[in-house]
Nucleic acid binder design. Sequence first.
RNA 1: GCACCCGUAGCUCAACUGAAUAGAGCAUCUGACUACGGAUCAGAAGGUUUGGGGUUUGAAUCCCUACGGGUGCACCA
Length: 588
Amino acid sequence: MSLNLNLLISKEVKRVAGLLFNYESEIQLQPIGAGFEGSHTVVCFPISKVAKKSPEQTATLIGENLDKNLVSKFQVVKGFLNLTIADSVWLASFKDVYKNRESYLQLPFNGLEIMVEYSSPNTNKPLHLGHLRNNFLGWSVSEIFKANGYNVHKVQIINDRGIHICKSMAAWKLYGNGETPQSTGKKGDHLVGDYYVKFDKVYKEQMAAMLPTEDPEKNAPIMKLASEMLIKWEAKDPETVSLWKTMNGWVYEGFGKTYQRMGVDFEKLYYESDTYLLGKSEVLKGVESGVFFRKDDGSVWVDLTGDGLDQKVLLRSDGTSVYMTQDIGTAILRFRDFPKISRQVYTVGNEQEYHFKVLFLILAKLGYTWAKECYHLSYGMVDLPTGKMKSREGTVVDADDLMQEMVNDFAEETKQRGKIEELTEDEQKDLFEIGGLGALKYFLLKVDPKKRMLFDPVESISLQGNTAPFIQYTHARIKALIRKAQTLQLDLNNFSISSLEPAEREVLRFISQYPNKLAEAAREYAPSVIANYAYDLAKAYNQFYQSIPIFAETDALKLKFRIAFTEVVADLLKKSMWLLGIRVPEKM
RNA sequence: GCACCCGUAGCUCAACUGAAUAGAGCAUCUGACUACGGAUCAGAAGGUUUGGGGUUUGAAUCCCUACGGGUGCACCA
């Protein structure tokens, strides 16, 4: 059981406010504003309304009646009640955190299960920069929910069917000469992606050579081949299905390598080829029950004009399914597979906001009560300084290439500094991976997900500023300090201290707020909250360390306290970065 | 055209459910190495939070409006 300083103060203020004014609502507790004495502030305006007294009077009355053992001093500025917490309480709180530091940011299981979908690429091209934001975001949100006590199921849906796959297949059949990842040494996803590009090129050339009267868009030979393959695939033609399996296999193998380097994983994979039939039957059931309607040409539609949206097609006139149909099937299948999940999170780019709005509405109309627990974790596009990148245009930044470049650049910078000679070659390689990928992940995650952002590779690996390397470096320095302390044979288990420096109190305040930040990050599905808070802590620590040379301390008790204090900071940094999928080195 | 999102220092980003003097970093300028890893730290300068209204004791935050940027409005996925 851990002692939550904020909760303790809130409770006490609530007790007093209840006693004096019968105030029932929650207490607004905030960090102290700059330039004011104390550490916590109670905003008394809401209370003063109930109390029917001026904000100043209300604040003063509450302040006078607070437990003096908890709040040693208070000050009233306008409607703000500024509290100075007693040293003994700070110490007790800190000792508690120190004792439980391994589990400080891990809440016990709360009995709830949640599913997080992320990644979900097309199988016809390699992953790109946008997918990196998606994967890092999905993985991190999952970990944040785990830390908040949820049981999390990480899944993805794979677009393994449709005309886009057949395009790669057609191009490979015509121009592939039997090429395989083995024969070319290429990653499977890249090889298949190359043939998708090849298809596009040939298709455009063929269309340009045709007369408008020939309907080139449909009748270009390569497109005709792709369309035939789709029909054959749906008819389960053995040769076509076999090629489809082979080429998808190449892609999965390539993706697997990319995921491994990204550090993401999945509990279960869903394939559209497995879920679209369920979606179809659900839609047909909906027609029978009158939720959907059929047009004269046989196509099935849902009418959402009553919800402020428009009409949406669910089955084509030829009876085949569309994107929406598959997603209906997938959602239902997931709740069957995991009956205990209370919520489903879809990590998908913001260009699909309308799609998910419609999907959730349809599921609700079909009578699934869990539909209101579906959440679209929407994120903005990632731009590069050199120009904009879009998923459906040519200027795509490949994920594998970018990760490698980040690692190379970080290695280059680190070698130039020349402080890693004592590391073995393997250790160095690992360090470069930690630094390069950490820089990438941190930079993509520190920004509010819903905002469009600019990725600057140079800034991201900088050791100054709000970056992973800065935090990693701070952690490494603390670890070095602790190693040194241990050689001094300090007993860190029974520390005690007579008084605290203001700088120490400042960092303690940070630490005591950490669980709130964790909850906030989960509530907002925003790893950026954790990222920015970790940076603030690292920065506060650096300032502390600059103002108090730890080993210059002659008082043994104070020295012990400070070492213990740095250990907590290191652990919190490590855990925060872990929640972002970033490792922190012991040495760098 | 309709719908949704965004607009904060020169640049990249913060600001918890509305709260005190809107914060960091980069870049610029000035300082601190007899020092635990200076890869750091301190300081200066930089803002009418796109403009205009409104609600409120209090607005970057909520509402309206104009402007600017983005995205979506396929029997594509």
